[in-house]
Simulated assay, not measured.
Amino acid sequence: MFYLIGLGLGDARDISVKGLEIVRRCEEVYLEAYTSILTCGAEALEELYGRPVTLADRETVEQGLDSVISAAGERDVALLVVGDPFAATTHHDLVLRARERGVPCRVVHNASIMTAVGCCGLQLYSYGETVSIPFWTDDWRPDSFVERIDANLARGQHTLCLLDIKVKEQSVENLLRGRKIYEPPRFMSVSVAAAQLLEAVGGRAETDPGLTPASRVVGLARVGTDTERLVACTLREMAGVDLGPPLHSLVVVGNTHPMELDYLKQFELGSDAKDTGKAKEGETKADQASS
């Protein structure tokens, strides 16, 4: 059996009881470390689960986890996924690959940013299409995500922006030369995302339709953890906000219900309540320094 098991958004303890029972009886356990990252190390998983955990990096995932799926045809194998297994289309492909080979597959769900984003107070049924914002380079600066944000805003809908992560990436030179040398991991912050969005909308006036520098946005960091941070402000202001370590997400606010507005007030830039009601002593010194 091939198991896809969601780990949730916090730490090793966020796995469901059902998921934990399955992991403890599987002969092989892998951690998908490409589409997202854990706030704790794999060692914490091994300690709690009582099983060795093997990292499935970018190369392994992009090759379709062929060896992992093949092994699942003979024994119980679990692939652990941060958040929910179906929050990334990569994992739909894995299920299809398993079924094509006649390998039975079972999915154990968990919380993902797609639903946990409700912590900012904007109602989930009021969100439109989710967009991804990639890191720009000197010669690659896509901005099609702005069109989709504009379309959501035209319908009065909020937009969840998933921010880029770069793990085990190679430079163009090393890739061309076939050198297995990888760049340091990079995780897009809300300030970088806001800066790219500001550049993408160019000289739009605040009264123009669609996304503008004055558009209301919410920055979210480390959702589901003890150091969760949320800040609500304008897009222009968000470019100067530091929410500390990853992972970050950004929401562009559409039309709001009065209750949504009341909820957002506690996260307004400069508000004493912007730490989402969690005890400040729960933050790490590094997080406090970055506030």
Results as ranks from 00 to 15, higher is better:
239 A>N: 04
159 T>V: 08
270 G>H: 06
78 A>I: 06
270 G>V: 08
41 G>Y: 11
177 R>T: 10
228 E>Y: 04
152 N>F: 03
262 D>H: 02
175 L>E: 13
272 D>I: 12
199 E>V: 01
219 G>Y: 02
227 T>P: 00
276 T>N: 04
88 A>K: 01
181 I>D: 10
95 V>W: 08
75 R>Q: 15
158 H>A: 05
250 L>I: 13
291 S>I: 05
253 V>H: 04
106 R>Y: 10
105 C>M: 07
27 E>C: 01
201 V>N: 04
176 L>T: 12
147 E>P: 00
105 C>S: 15
275 D>Q: 12
47 E>S: 05
132 S>A: 14
264 L>H: 07
73 G>P: 00
213 P>Y: 11
22 I>P: 02
224 G>D: 11
255 N>I: 05
192 V>N: 01
148 R>W: 04
193 A>G: 09
198 L>F: 07
134 P>G: 07
273 A>F: 13
237 E>A: 15
187 F>V: 10
148 R>V: 13
201 V>C: 04
235 L>R: 10
36 S>F: 08
132 S>H: 13
265 K>P: 03
192 V>C: 01
251 V>Y: 05
19 G>L: 06
100 E>A: 14
31 L>S: 06
200 A>I: 09
239 A>R: 11
139 D>Y: 13
225 T>C: 06
129 E>G: 00
140 W>F: 14
219 G>T: 09
234 T>H: 05
42 A>H: 09
243 L>K: 03
101 R>P: 01
278 K>H: 12
197 L>Q: 04
145 F>D: 06
78 A>K: 00
262 D>C: 02
103 V>M: 07
262 D>N: 02
184 P>M: 14
128 G>L: 07
233 C>H: 08
259 M>C: 10
